[in-house]
Amino acid sequence: MALMGFDVARWRPGPLLPGSDARDGSLIFVVAVLTFLAVATAITGLAADRAARGWTAQLNHSATVVVRPSAGETPDGAAAKAADALAGVKGVAEARALEKEKAEALLKPWLGDTSILADLPVPRLVTLDLDPKAPASLASLTAKLKEQGIDATVDDHRLWIADIERGARVARWSMLGVFVLISAAAAAVIAFATRAGLAARRDVVEVLHLSGASSGFTAGLFQWRFARMAALAGLFGGAGAAILGALARMAGGGAGLTPVLPVAWIDLAAAIPAPFVAAIVAALAARAAALSLVREMA
């Protein structure tokens, strides 16, 4: 029956909670910012981890041999002899004798571009690419050189690898720590804002409570309300961080922004769970806050 434009037959129940207000906008903004920071940290952490793994792999699969020529032997000849000998060792993919110019170039950062290099007995280097699956050991390389009567020292980068691995571990755990802290801060903000939102709507909660609503019914209303808001905020924040990651990826071409932060497209997937995680955290916080408020009333 229609009454003054109101059709009872078409009536649909209205939302039991009041619509959004300025407080909700602030909550969405703060949660979006925190989600942005959390996702950006995750993307940075993934890229940093990849960089550390790359450096470790490079060092693990290579070695450098410093060759000292014996009497009557030219430095280049000694280096070529060492390269030939080591190329035959099991676990060595390739052995290359470094030319004099390249060896001197390695010293220039320390000695400068001076004529002193011409007077110095610059040692020759042999670089080895090792088989990634079964790299030759330091002992086997040293034994081969000794067997051939070559005066040389093998550096398998063990010292550097240990430092880099230690650095990578620190970076990985630091990123994880920052990520956890930001996520915890986001959860705390959501919980705080939820409580504030509930307190502001205490009158509604009281009416529902006294009209016979169970605590679960009331908590459910606020739970979904805040979950939806947080999901929206998570979507904004996650998308913002993903866009930033994509820019970093595109800015550096195939290697990402820099070799230090080689962002991969797959890293951007870290943004996908953001709306869901934010919604779940908000739902749990809202539920806990609503149940607590209803318990106070009871």
């Binding site: 009872v8 209205g14 039991l16 909670l17 009041p18 009158d203 009281e206 006294l210």
Partner: peptide, 9 residues
């Protein structure tokens, strides 16, 4: 204690 955001109905 009416809910102001809801209609009378």
């Amino acid at each position: 204690r009416l809910l102001d955001h809801l209609s009378a109905f």
